[in-house]
């Protein structure tokens, strides 16, 4: 796999540097860390939001730093959770005394590293709360396992909890909103091609020229089924069915959706998927109030997409509509 990089070991650091240079109006670096901060952090009177995880999901997470969304993003190595020492630095840098809220995707590594940082921060007297996002219905939701993965639905948590914090919500209120988003959001993805971690040099898995992997994770973790590729409509239907038939009752509801590109899939194809999803939801009596089509949570250069559906109420709609000004998401 050809890559536009220098040394594999320097990819994350150089990417962060290039990001910071591209968006000096939004972010600044926290010297000696892989943390990027909102320029005006700590924002006094505001609960601070931190997200992060392995790199390779750009524009997540640093792309969501700015007014109305995140105060900091912590970047790990490619597909590898960041370490507690980085996270604790981020927590200290953004806390204005109103507490810090951590948005964690449900991967063992992320959960452990963030929780360790949280313990350390609490020991230093900082109030920290967290939400663990687990929107991926491809994975069984079982209490015997570590449960479902967090994927593109995380962006809704950034937006809605971020808007709540920007509007002056307390740490508890922000947490409640985030939990509401998690409770009402379901996603599922499909891959057409694998991706390659720069340091590894080998694709994460192999797919034949006519095969797709249904239920793929955003780190190239194998999905639930490998099958022959079919039409855009059929694939979208398959994902949508799983999403809609899960535990959220979407009947007669209003929803916001994300048609998320995983990396190499052209926007034209995402819009073809969107067309199907819109028609299908309409037929099912579900009203789409907000539509986001594009690359929000990627998996390096993987081809494929995911569909996220979030059931919304009045407050969630207002928070989606609230202003946001970040490199990757503006309203």
């Amino acid at each position: 796999m050809k890559k536009v990089i220098n040394q594999a070991d320097d990819v994350v650091e150089e990417m962060l540097e290039g990001f910071r240079m591209a968006h000096p109006g939004y972010v600044r670096a926290l010297e000696g860390t892989t943390v990027l901060l909102r320029n005006d952090a700590p924002v006094s009177g505001k609960v601070a939001l931190i997200s992060g995880g392995g790199s390779g999901h750009e524009p997540a997470h640093a792309g969501y730093i700015g007014t109305g969304m995140l105060d900091a993003a912590v970047a790990g190595e490619m597909f590898t959770s960041p370490t507690p020492d980085q996270i604790i630095e981020a927590i200290k840098a953004v806390d204005s005394g109103n507490g810090v809220f951590l948005v964690i995707k449900n991967y063992t590594g992320d959960v452990m590293n963030f929780e360790m940082a949280r313990e350390m921060a609490e020991a230093e007297g900082i109030s920290v709360e967290q939400v663990v996002v687990n929107d991926d219905v491809a994975v069984e939701d079982s209490s015997f396992t570590s449960g479902r993965r967090g994927i593109a639905g995380t962006v809704f948590v950034h937006k809605i909890a971020g808007a709540k914090a920007e509007a002056g919500g307390s740490l508890q209120e922000v947490k409640q909103m985030a939990e509401k988003v998690v409770a009402n959001t379901r996603s599922m993805g499909v891959a057409l091609t694998p991706c390659t971690i720069p340091g590894s040099g080998r694709p994460n898995f192999q797919l034949e020229d006519d095969e797709i992997e249904v239920g793929i994770g955003i780190h190239g973790e194998p999905g639930i089924e490998r099958k022959k590729i079919s039409s855009a409509d059929d694939i979208a239907e398959e994902l949508l069915q799983k999403v809609l038939k899960d535990s959220v009752d979407f009947n007669d509801s209003e929803v916001a959706i994300i048609i998320n590109g995983l990396g190499a899939t052209p926007e034209s194809e995402l819009y073809i998927v969107n067309r199907y999803v819109q028609n299908r939801l309409k037929e099912s009596g579900i009203k789409v109030t907000h539509t986001y089509v594009g690359e929000y949570m990627t998996s390096l250069e993987m081809a494929g997409f995911s569909i996220t559906v979030m059931k919304v109420d009045e407050e969630m709609k207002q928070l989606l509509d609230a202003g946001a000004d970040t490199p990757a998401f503006r309203r």
Binding site: G54, T80, S81, P82, T83, Y107, T108, G109, M112, M116
Partner: peptide, 12 residues
């Protein structure tokens, strides 16, 4: 190890 490994194995 805690600050360099990351992922699940680092904290463990």
């Amino acid at each position: 190890l805690m600050s360099k490994v990351g992922g699940a194995s680092g904290p463990l």
